[in-house]
């Protein structure tokens, strides 16, 4: 099976005061479909930057990046956006629900950006509300929900378009441990159902939900290990 993601010598750097500061250095990695990968490392290691590049939110880098065998490094902005819209869902640490929209509307947003017809959108949103057991919250605004509930909606929003890949940046960072566990269980179930998941976390406990842990430091991939090996 071809990898979902292939990176070859990917680098990102800033020019400042005539010098070049590297954020990511010679990243070479493969991620298979159905994998649950965790990026770990100290602050400033480049984890979130790498996640943004994988999510195609950042285009200022060099090297090769293939997503579903498509050369992202050669695609124009429009094609990258198409690829991103069709295949990737995001979950953020601070949920990033849109304050002025209800739960229902927040869930509808990614579908509207994919030009899904209104009837189909309503049907998909109802379906996801039901799957996540949040039908009763559909007319509430984000500030009327607890942190755990907001992140539940955040995950539901990432899942609603049935992405091949979910990128989660510290998804439980703002939650207490019981809520965090609930969200991680949810990721596990989604992964078991076939969705590839990449998370950034500082939490060893959360890392254990995945298959593989990639350690970054100063922009370099410094180690890779199976999560199970760490338990061992």
């Amino acid at each position: 099976m071809e990898p979902l993601i292939q990176m070859r010598n990917l680098e990102k750097a800033f020019e400042a005061g005539g010098s070049k500061f590297f954020v990511l250095r010679r990243i070479t990695l493969d991620i298979q479909p159905g994998e649950f990968v965790t990026f770990m490392g100290p602050s400033g290691a480049g984890k979130s930057t790498l996640l943004s590049i994988i999510g195609m939110l950042d285009s200022a880098w060099s090297g090769e990046y293939y997503f579903l065998e498509q050369p992202v490094h050669k695609l124009n902005v429009k094609k990258r956006n198409e690829l991103h819209k069709a295949n990737i869902g995001f979950v953020f640490q601070s949920y990033h629900l849109i304050d002025n929209l209800t739960v229902f509307e927040n869930l509808e947003i990614p579908l509207s950006y994919k030009n899904v017809p209104h009837k189909e959108r309503v049907s998909l949103v109802c379906d996801i509300l039901d799957r996540f057991n949040i039908v009763g919250k559909k007319d509430l605004f984000p500030n009327q929900l607890s942190g755990g509930q907001q992140q539940l909606v955040g995950v539901a929003r990432a899942v609603i378009q049935n992405p091949k890949l979910i990128l989660a940046d510290e998804p439980t960072g703002n939650l207490h441990s019981a809520q965090g566990d609930e969200i991680m269980q949810l990721f596990k179930r989604l992964n078991d159902a076939g969705t590839t998941i990449i998370q950034v976390t500082h939490s060893e406990r959360n890392a254990m939900y995945g298959h593989r842990i990639i350690q970054l430091n100063d922009g370099w991939v410094v180690s890779e290990e199976k999560a199970a090996a760490r338990v061992g």
């Binding site: 995001f90 304050d99 947003i109 990614p110 950006y113 378009q161």
Partner: peptide
């Protein structure tokens, strides 16, 4: 800026 960032991350194009 966060809202706009989220919308872009969720797939909103420039035109939208």
């Amino acid at each position: 800026s966060k809202e706009i960032g989220v919308r872009i991350a969720l797939g909103a194009g420039k035109g939208r």
